[in-house]
C-alpha cells in the first residue's frame, strides 16, 4: 500500500510541476541568452564586418572600399566573390616592417607597463587588504574615484605635469634637485607613466579582492613554523594572490596593447604603437581595408594566447580539485 503511494506520488507531482518547470527552464535560458546576444551584436557582428572590410580593396567611394562577399548580385555573385577572395591586405602587413615593429613595440610597452603597474599596485592592494575593515570602503572609493573624471582629461593633465616647463620640472628645479628640465613628455617614459596611472585601478581591484579573502592566520602559521615575514610573503601571500595577479595583469595588458590616446598625447610623434598605426591607416590614409586587417591581427595576437592560457588554467584547476 505504502509502496503504491510512494510510486504514485512522484508521477502526479511531475505532472503538476511540468508546466512550471518548463517555464522556469525558459526563464533560465533567457537569462543566459542575454550575454550571448550582447556578444553577438556588439562583438561577433562588428568583428565579421571588420573582417569583411579587411578582405576588400581601397576605392575612392563611399564607403572607401570595394564591396566584397555581399548578396547584391545574388548567390552566384557571392560565390564568384568567394573565388576572387584574397588576403592581400594581410600579406601587405608582413611586407612592411612598420606593422611588425608596431605590434612588437606595443606588446613590449604593454608588457613593461603591466609589470610596472603590478609593482605599484601590489603594495597598494596589500595595504588596503590589511587596513582596518572600517577604512577599507574609503580606500576602495579612493581607488575608483578617478573614474569619475574623463579619461581623456586625466591624460591631458599629465601633459601639464610632465612637459619641460611643467609642474614636475618646476618643482624639481625649485628644489635644486636638477639644473636642466627633464625631458619626459614625448618619450616612452611618459607612455609608461600614463599607462601605469590610467590602468592602476584595474590592477588594484582584482589584487585587493584576492588579498582580502586571504586568511591572515596562514601568515602567522608560516611565521610560527620558522618563516620570516619576507619569506612568508613569497611562499604564502604571493602564490595565493596569483589569481588576482593574473586577472589584474590581463586587465591592464590587453587594453594597453591597443592603447591609442596615451601614446598619442604623451608619447609624441616618434613613438610607434599599433593603436596609433591603426588610427593613421584609418583616418590619415583612409585605408579601411588595411586598418581592418591590422585590427583583426591585433585581436588574434591578444585572444589566441589568452585562450590557451585560460585552457591550461582550467585544466590545472580540474587537476587540483
Amino acid at each position: 500500500m505504502s509502496n503504491i503511494a510512494a510510486t504514485a506520488a512522484p508521477s502526479s507531482e511531475t505532472a503538476a510541476a511540468l508546466p512550471t518547470r518548463l517555464a522556469k527552464g525558459f526563464v533560465d535560458r533567457l537569462v543566459i541568452i542575454v550575454p550571448y546576444l550582447w556578444l553577438l551584436f556588439f562583438f561577433l557582428v562588428p568583428f565579421v564586418i571588420v573582417f569583411k572590410i579587411s578582405l576588400s580593396q581601397t576605392a575612392i567611394s563611399m564607403p572607401p572600399y570595394t564591396p566584397v562577399l555581399d548578396f547584391t548580385d545574388g548567390v552566384s555573385g557571392f560565390l564568384a566573390g568567394l573565388r576572387e577572395l584574397n588576403f592581400d591586405n594581410y600579406t601587405w602587413l608582413t611586407q612592411d616592417a612598420l606593422y611588425f615593429n608596431a605590434y612588437v613595440t606595443s606588446l613590449i610597452i604593454a608588457g613593461i607597463s603591466t609589470i610596472l603597474t603590478l609593482i605599484v599596485g601590489y603594495p597598494i592592494a596589500y595595504g588596503m587588504a590589511r587596513a582596518p575593515a572600517t577604512v577599507r570602503p574609503i580606500l576602495l572609493m579612493l581607488v575608483i574615484l578617478p573614474f569619475w573624471t574623463s579619461f581623456l582629461i586625466r591624460v591631458y593633465a599629465w601633459i601639464g605635469i610632465l612637459k619641460p616647463e611643467g609642474l614636475l620640472n618646476q618643482m624639481l628645479l625649485s628644489l635644486h634637485l636638477i639644473s636642466q628640465p627633464l625631458v619626459i613628455l614625448n618619450t616612452y617614459t611618459a607612455i609608461f607613466i600614463g599607462i601605469v596611472y590610467s590602468y592602476l585601478p584595474f590592477m588594484v581591484l582584482p589584487l585587493y579582492s584576492s588579498l582580502e579573502k586571504m586568511d591572515y592566520s596562514l601568515i602567522e602559521a608560516a611565521q610560527d613554523l620558522g618563516c620570516p615575514p619576507t619569506g612568508a610573503f613569497w611562499k604564502i601571500t604571493f602564490p595565493l594572490s596569483l589569481p588576482g595577479v593574473i586577472a589584474g595583469c590581463l586587465l591592464v595588458f590587453i587594453p594597453a596593447v591597443g592603447e591609442f590616446v596615451i601614446p598619442d598625447l604623451l608619447g609624441g610623434s616618434q613613438t610607434l604603437m599599433i593603436g596609433k598605426t591603426l588610427w593613421n591607416e584609418f583616418f590619415a590614409n583612409r585605408d579601411w581595408p588595411v586598418s581592418s586587417a591590422v585590427a583583426v591581427i591585433l585581436l588574434l595576437v591578444l585572444t589566441v594566447p589568452i585562450m590557451f592560457f585560460q585552457q591550461a588554467q582550467a585544466r590545472a584547476q580540474e587537476q587540483g580539485k
Binding site: 586568511d215 592566520s217 596562514l218 602567522e220 602559521a221 611565521q223 610560527d224 613554523l225 620558522g226 618563516c227 620570516p228 615575514p229
Partner: peptide, 14 residues
C-alpha cells in the same frame, strides 16, 4: 615568532 622553539596548531588549522 619564527625564532621561538614553540609551534602552534591553529583553531582554523591555517
Amino acid at each position: 615568532p619564527y625564532r621561538r622553539p614553540v609551534n602552534m596548531m591553529f583553531q582554523s588549522y591555517a
